[in-house]
Amino acid sequence: MKASERESFFKSLALYFVTIEILIGFLLYHNYREDVGSLKQQLFLEMKNYNFNFEGEKFALDFVPKQTEAPLLELREDGQTLYALFPLPANQRYLLKIYYPKADFKTQTGALLGRYLLFMLLLSAVVGAMAFGFARYTLRPLRSALALTDRFIKDIIHDLNTPVSAILINTSMLNREDKAVRRIEKSAKLIGMLYRNLQEYQGGLPQQRDTFRLDSLVAERLAFFQDLYPALTFRTALAPTTMRANPDALTRIVDNLLSNACKYNVKEGEVSLALSERTFSITNTAAAPIRSPRNLFDRFYKESERGIGIGLHIVKKLCDEERIAIAVTQRENRVTFTCTLPAGQTER
């Protein structure tokens, strides 16, 4: 099950389950309160009968001074008992108090509450099973849509590879000094980057690991972007660094971060790259501050109409696979992406 499917499944499950549970809980609580009221009513009726015959040991009685404000023939409670006051026909100074220990009444209501909780637990199990089935059922349209999208992307990947390769091969045989030829070549390379991003989105990058010079890889990819964005100023401080990792993954990370830094820069802005010890960072002057840094690596999240919103998501995905910690910070008009390389995989 894919991440989007899991998210949809658990949200549907939680929504259905919680909604029904709240409804059931409200109804059971209402019934519980009514049953407690019925217990009190039954207790009062038994007190009235006891007032006539004094049979049984369930209740205790006492005589209390009569007070004008004392309510008669009504079940009341104090700190220790539930009681009712009854008049004495031959005595105008005292009232008969019949009472029942509150601890015993709490035992009764506790047993009643236990039955309701057990019933609630059984209902919750039934509702949980229904919610699971409901969530699985609602997941079908999403799975169909995702399967259709995956097939569409796979078809695009397959159809992109051949024409892009043909364009690059043929432009290499033309006059490289011709501006039109260079523009065609640049556009073909950008399409090639999109192709590789889509390939990674589908999980199609090779997984082999190798030892390579990370500073040389960064310099090579930087040369490509310098050619694409001649108006930008690029500054570098790349210390010689050897790394053991997936070179294709690191290429995608560097490409997408550089592409992001160039596309969302200001006119005649700057891009600075730094590589030292276990830290690689890219800083660019920003056309606008990042509105939601926490969502920046989410799939399909975009802060403008440009792009398709998978570049930084792929960066985060590949960084997680390579155990690289990535963070974004912004200060004044500059944005910095910092990659902390895993210990034991780099050397100077």
Rank of each mutant, 00 (worst) to 15 (best):
L160G: 01
N161V: 05
N161R: 15
N161F: 14
T162Q: 04
A166I: 05
I167K: 02
I167A: 14
I167G: 02
L168Y: 04
I169M: 10
N170M: 10
N170S: 12
T171K: 04
T171A: 05
S172D: 05
S172V: 03
M173V: 05
L174F: 07
L174D: 00
L174W: 03
N175C: 00
N175F: 03
N175Q: 08
R176W: 01
E177G: 14
D178Y: 15
D178K: 13
K179E: 15
K179Q: 11
A180N: 12
V181D: 03
V181H: 08
V181L: 10
R182C: 02
E185T: 15
E185N: 09
K186G: 13
A188I: 13
K189D: 06
K189C: 03
L190P: 00
I191E: 04
I191K: 04
G192A: 14
L194Y: 09
Y195M: 01
Y195C: 01
R196K: 15
N197L: 02
Q199F: 03
E200Y: 02
E200M: 07
Y201I: 04
Q202T: 09
G203Y: 03
L205N: 12
L205A: 06
L205W: 05
Q207Y: 02
Q208K: 05
Q208G: 06
D210C: 01
D210M: 08
F212G: 04
L217K: 07
L217N: 02
V218E: 04
A219T: 09
E220V: 04
L222R: 11
F225D: 04
Q226D: 01
D227K: 11
D227H: 03
Y229N: 13
P230Y: 05
P230Q: 05
A231M: 08
T233R: 14
R235C: 00
R235V: 09
T236H: 01
T236C: 04
T236D: 00
A237W: 01
A237G: 15
A237Q: 14
L238S: 03
L238K: 08
L238Y: 10
A239L: 07
P240A: 07
T241I: 12
T241K: 10
A245T: 03
A245L: 09
A245K: 12
N246F: 08
N246P: 09
P247K: 14
P247S: 10
P247G: 04
D248K: 10
D248P: 00
A249I: 02
L250G: 01
T251F: 14
R252P: 00
I253N: 02
I253H: 01
D255R: 08
N256H: 03
L257A: 07
L258P: 12
N260S: 13
N260K: 12
A261Y: 12
C262P: 12
K263W: 06
K263N: 08
Y264L: 10
Y264T: 08
Y264R: 06
N265S: 13
K267G: 04
K267M: 14
